[in-house]
Design a protein around this nucleic acid. Structure first.
Lengths: 221, 221
DNA sequence: TCTATACTTTGAGCGTCATCAAAGTATTTC
DNA sequence: GAAATACTTTGATGACGCTCAAAGTATAGA
């Protein structure tokens, strides 16, 4: 093959459902044991080990033994970027069961995406903050306004204007939500204050009763 | 991962060498006949036709008949973007992931682990020291930099570069914190200066008001 | 209508690869 | 030192999908 040497190898390495699942689990940059990963992917321990070795050979993941446990974690952040990009270009799967549809709706409504808020809540929040002039947007850059400083301090984020912030394409909404350091801090602040709670089932988040009215309004709509 | 865009299908659609070749031929946005494409890919006419149908089903390529000939061409130019992106990752450059800034959502207490700092504060501290080039990391070994000598002297640790230091997997964070003699001395130094205080209830530690700003920042975030 | 050309579909062959159970290795605990 | 735990490697199995030849379909031209 001409100018594209191991491209196929690369693609096929991501192109297996189990391996993709492994990568998306590890996308939070934490380390996981093989047993944990095996449970998440619903394949046997040996199969999990087999896939982890493949990913290791690609030099995408790092491994570390501590006692009886072997921990695996992502080496490079670009894996996350790739998956996110691929999500934006791949058409949503047809949902064929009620439960699947419910789950899809949950995830579509609000979820975390590499530790920032995504889904309807995520894009709604960005809109809200721009409408209220907490943020100012120029093309793909976002900056905190004078107004915004007070707003962010109010929700527990100091010196928001110093944090970098960028936009991230939301695969379900096909619109932008806030990413970068600021997006991350916001998500963390919401969690810390108990306004949102991570779902145990999937990457969706649930708005709690103690969240402020303006946030509830975004969730309802 | 039900209800989510099915990446696997997307990825596997690009992940075949022949299809990738087809896509890269068509990347100039021109239309080609099946015979032409068959010659370019060096597979039989029937195989070419088979792949073109697959790409059609993905709605990536367009087809129209003109007399005896059938012409195929790209619909979307994002295919070019994808291929380009994938090429950048197929030759992976080794990146020291620990130089990359990583933030975490969970609010966990700082604690001691065999007399060195663990928990969010512990892993945050390690990240901080690597980011500021006080420490240098190679795989699972850590060494004190020239920069670091001054830093450690500043917080009351002489000849830090002579102390051995190793990484310890943090149970709550699933990332590394600093252990070994250096980790021990750091913890002792922090206690001596009153920056951290041991809880009387359990192994957790509390950051005091007299601790420096950079340390407080690690605790807050 | 007959023939040549262009392409598609079908069916068989074949290799690759994901998967699991079982055996093997490493490490801790008792 | 023995048993338990955590993981890896091996070997067998089976499925999926790429491939081609051959048969089928569509169109053009005589």
């Amino acid at each position: 093959m001409n100018g594209l040497p191991n491209l196929t190898e690369t693609i096929q390495a991501i192109g297996d459902p189990t391996r993709l699942e492994l990568l998306t689990v590890m996308i939070d940059n934490r380390y996981y044991t093989v047993t944990e990963l095996s449970k998440r992917t619903h394949v046997s321990l040996s199969t999990t080990s087999y896939h982890l070795k493949k990913l290791s050979n690609m030099e995408w993941i790092d491994t570390y033994r501590q006692g009886k446990n072997v921990y695996y974690g992502l080496i490079n952040n670009y894996i996350a970027d790739i998956i996110e990009l691929l999500m934006t270009i791949s058409a949503p799967k047809k949902v064929n069961s009620y439960n699947q549809k419910i789950e899809y709706l949950e995830i579509k409504r609000a979820r975390t995406c590499y530790s920032h808020l995504a889904g309807e809540l995520g894009v709604g929040l960005l809109d809200y903050m721009i409408e209220n002039r907490y943020l100012e947007r120029k093309n793909h850059d976002v900056s905190v306004t004078e107004n915004g400083k007070f707003f962010f301090r109010g929700i527990g984020i100091e010196n928001a204007e110093l944090l970098n912030s960028k936009l991230c394409m939301d695969w379900s909404e096909r619109r932008f939500h806030l990413a970068g350091e600021l997006g991350l801090k916001i998500c963390a602040a919401f969690l810390r204050q108990g306004w949102i709670v991570n779902s145990t089932k999937n990457r969706s988040v649930i708005l709690s009763m103690v969240s402020p009215e303006w946030l509830k309004a975004l969730y309802k709509s």
